[in-house]
């Protein structure tokens, strides 16, 4: 992290469990404005749970959990989202009975601090595929198109940080390329991204640095190569 920048999101000593099955052990990480950070780890390592715990969607405890210097521990998920923290879940969770345009409407929130807000038109420029199907019900879309819609829907909330859970999973290589373009576009807009990933290739293409998560613990942090190497041990 560059010196002097205030971190956007600070997570310190995060523990989480589903029932009595513990999933996260003392996870700590930081993300500064405009950064793209990868959270690497295999299936079941606790990546999704980390993101959900930050958003208050799973019961978790942390020594410190702040966003924009404000504690978000115990806040309702919608309050956290309104502070500018967006989430694109692994399962995408598109509203399949709604049209593309309606899905975007659900995500719409006013932009904070006078930034130009995202509009469907701006998003359609970013994801040209979506423009052609704005009136279509989302259950008639392919997996890649749904993934783009999920990102677009989150951007409609004008977040300053997006938690992006396994965006490349289950997608054809050509779609994965578009996904990488989308992440780079977000970075250009000044949006920070915390990206959970299993495959180094995608993470390497878009992220500035990485954390490595294994069995619910942060095992490494630093460059992507270093983290990949450490995770293999």
């Amino acid at each position: 992290m560059s010196a002097g920048t205030t971190p956007l999101l600070v997570v310190e000593g995060l523990d989480a469990a589903y029932g009595r099955a513990r999933v996260l052990f003392d996870v700590s990480l930081e993300i500064a404005a405009g950064e793209v950070v990868a959270l690497m780890g295999r299936n079941g390592a606790g990546k999704s749970t980390t993101l959900k715990a930050v958003l208050g969607l799973v019961p978790a405890k942390a020594r410190r959990l702040t966003f924009l210097d404000r504690s978000i521990a115990g806040l309702a998920p919608h309050r956290i989202a309104r502070l500018g923290l967006g989430w694109v879940p692994e399962e995408r969770r598109i509203f399949t009975e709604l049209t593309v345009a309606e899905n975007l409407e659900v995500g719409r929130r006013p932009a904070p601090d006078g930034r130009a807000p995202w509009t469907p038109e701006r998003l359609f420029a970013l994801f040209p595929n979506l423009a052609e199907m704005r009136g279509r019900r989302a259950d008639a879309m392919s997996g890649g198109e749904q993934q783009m819609l999920a990102i677009a829907r989150t951007l409609m909330g004008n977040p300053s940080l997006v938690l992006l859970d396994e965006p490349s999973e289950g997608l054809a290589p050509v779609i994965v390329e578009q996904m990488a373009d989308a992440v780079r576009a977000m970075k250009q807009e000044g949006i920070a991204v915390l990206l959970s990933e299993q495959t180094a290739a995608f993470a390497a293409a878009v992220s500035d640095r990485a954390y490595g998560l294994a069995r619910g613990e942060i095992r490494a942090s630093g460059t992507l190569d270093a983290v990949s190497a450490a995770l293999a041990v």
């Binding site: 998920p77 919608h78 989202a81 989430w87 969770r93 509203f95 009975e97 659900v106 995500g107 829907r153």
Partner: peptide
């Protein structure tokens, strides 16, 4: 369809 997701969108 999905209350939690609606909440996570603010």
């Amino acid at each position: 369809q999905d209350r939690e997701m609606v909440g996570a969108l603010g």
